[in-house]
Design a protein around this nucleic acid. Structure first.
Length: 599
DNA sequence: CTAGGGTTAG
């Protein structure tokens, strides 16, 4: 037991800073002479841990308080308490220093009151780099990137944190630029840069950067494991994981998540069980197991997931959402609706999961109404809400409802709804499926920055509405604009060719997809080409392709062949076209139709 | 020695 108050305080603050709250507390309890610094250290520890009620209790017991005590309390409130409580405490402050003002910024930022935050910011008596950084972070986190950049440019002096915020906030290109421009790097800068590469799917660059690090970084290593997992490169992720000398809960969780995402549930479960001995399982570990069913769609896995959910020692909002999502994917809408009713709290992700449950079971109208319901319930619809509602309108061909949603999106005028043009792309698809091609084109033309996905949606819209040559033109313009078509773009263009009966062109796209772009054709591509050949009456080639394709021909491909025979005399129907007894319901009718037509 | 900003996982 150290004798002086000063040395005790030093040890207590050391414990508190490193999260050893229990040790800090027991030394504090054993002290003879506690001064205000001893009390403040304990108070600060509770405050930083978000333990506001404990902090409040300590604050109440303090024999004397100073500016530090009040600042700690205000910080705790700013992180956890309501706007009114924070305001009340702020009014009671004996002195208002910049630190307290900065906590007020955080309180606004926390629940998205960005305009109020900016108003508060400009009322400050003076500013330092930390309060500037706080507003930049808040703007960036809420998706107000232009505001974030404005403050970034407006700041009189930047420190390493200012730059790190930009590395975190910007997409890869911007992150690289910020990283290269910043005068010096700290470990957080490197971690953020590794993470940015991982987020962009550039796992190779992320791994290379990790190796360049002079010292071991848990955060960066975990980022790389996570990035490999996201891309399905589980073996690479495992190699990094196995090479680690120190792993924390996040390392384990990331590795488990990689297996789950890859549908390798058995291995995920094995690690999940193993980590119970070595690392502390937290709520995220449990939540990580829950999406397993979404990937595997294996009924046995759904049971395992339900079991997991029941046994969870703690649940978070994400646990409920993940379970809801699993039900949605499993098509067990009834259970999804029941779980939704039982949920203690509902956030926008919960409502979106409900919408997808309804959408996947074909209840398009009630899926489209989710946006209105959540709004009534006091939950602000976000980009995902609008995207799934628009998809529902498209599926239901509910043009009127789609237009209402469009008007709401425009009226909301929220930068967060831009979300990389995803909402605008959803509008294009919605209008297209409602056969309102003019409005689809208008939505597309109105996009400030188009990307591969929006171009592909436009190609598909033109193809679906029978404008095959325009679809081909759009495909060509897309390439001229520097967007390299991916597997999905080719489905759009192949279906355009198929609708138009352009055999040669469709075939050349198919060949170029494989040869020039190195894209492995999937079942959908084969189905388009089969349909194309079938429509053109090129049965020989169609049959040859059906034999050669690495998929079991589904009913659709056989129907393509069959429909191609429509009108042929029975004697001319090739023998490889399926016989009557092989056919099930839908095809049977078609076949009978062919025979009748053949007379 | 104590108070405000940036670091990983669903």
């Amino acid at each position: 037991m150290p004798s002086s108050t000063l040395s005790c305080n030093r040890i207590i603050s050391g414990f508190a800073r490193n999260g050893h709250l229990e040790n800090a507390k027991s030394l504090f309890d054993a002290m003879f002479d506690r001064d205000v610094v001893s009390w403040n250290s304990i108070l600060g520890a509770y405050s930083r841990h978000g333990a506001t009620s404990e902090a409040r209790e300590v604050f109440g017991k303090m024999p004397a308080t100073d500016g530090f005590s009040w600042s700690s309390m205000l910080s705790a409130f700013a992180h956890t308490a309501s706007r009114d409580e924070v305001g009340e405490l702020f009014d009671k402050l004996p002195v208002r220093e910049l630190i307290s003002w900065t906590s007020m910024l955080h309180s606004c930022a926390r629940d998205g009151r960005l305009e109020e935050m900016q108003a508060v910011f400009w009322r400050f008596p003076c500013w330092d780099v930390i309060c500037w950084n706080e507003v930049i972070t808040a703007c960036a986190r809420e998706g107000h990137l232009s505001d974030a950049l404005m403050f970034h440019h407006g700041i009189p002096a930047r420190d390493v944190v200012t730059w790190n915020i930009m590395v975190r906030a910007l997409a890869l290109e911007g992150a690289v630029a910020a990283f290269e421009r910043m005068p010096q790097h700290d470990i957080v800068s490197w971690n953020s840069m590794v993470h940015a590469y991982g987020l962009a799917g550039e796992t190779g660059s992320a791994a290379r950067l990790l190796q360049q690090l002079a010292c071991f970084s848990l955060a960066a290593t975990n980022s790389v494991i996570g990035a490999y997992g996201l891309k399905g490169q589980v073996e690479e992720a495992r190699r990094v994981f196995d090479a680690m000398l120190h792993r924390n809960t996040v390392s384990w969780n990331s590795m488990v998540a990689g297996y789950v995402r890859a549908g390798r549930v058995a291995e995920a479960k094995l690690l999940f069980d193993a980590m119970a001995d070595t690392a502390k399982r937290d709520v995220v570990s449990w939540n990580t197991m829950l999406p397993a069913f979404t990937v595997t769609e294996d009924a046995a896995v759904l049971e395992l997931v339900e079991e997991c959910f029941r046994r969870m020692p703690f649940t978070s909002q994400a646990s409920w959402n993940a379970m809801l999502h699993a039900y949605a994917c499993g098509g067990v809408t009834q259970r999804a609706e029941q779980l939704f009713e039982r949920m203690p709290e509902k956030d926008s992700a919960s409502w979106s999961a409900l919408a997808s449950a309804r959408l996947l079971s074909g209840k398009c109208q009630s899926a489209a109404s989710v946006v209105a319901l959540m709004d009534l319930d006091g939950c602000k619809p976000d980009a995902v809400s609008y995207i799934s509602a628009l998809e529902a309108c498209g599926m239901a061909s509910d043009l009127a409802q789609g237009r209402i949603l469009h008007a709401e999106i425009v009226a909301a005028d929220d930068p967060a709804l831009q979300d990389g043009g995803k909402v605008a792309t959803a509008l294009v698809s919605m209008y297209s499926r409602c056969a309102a091609l003019g409005e689809a084109v208008a939505a597309f033309d109105g996009m400030s920055s188009k990307n591969l996905v929006s171009w592909t949606a436009m190609v598909a819209a033109l193809a679906q509405n029978g404008f095959s040559s325009l679809a081909r033109l759009a495909f060509w313009r897309m390439e001229l604009n520097g967007f390299t078509p991916d597997s999905i773009s080719f489905i759009s263009i192949l279906s355009a060719c198929s609708h138009a009966g352009s055999v040669e062109l469709g075939w050349s796209h198919f060949v170029s997809m494989v040869g020039d772009y190195g894209i492995q054709p999937g079942l959908d591509h084969y189905a388009c080409v089969l349909d194309l050949l079938g429509r053109a009456g090129n049965l020989e080639d169609a049959h040859e392709l059906m034999d050669a394709m690495p998929f079991i021909p589904g009913p659709d491909s056989r129907t393509s062949l069959l429909s191609a025979c429509r009108g042929l005399p029975v004697s001319k129907v090739p023998e490889f076209v399926p016989h009557e007894q092989e056919l099930d319901g839908g095809e049977d009718v078609l076949f009978v139709g062919i025979l009748a037509a053949a007379g």
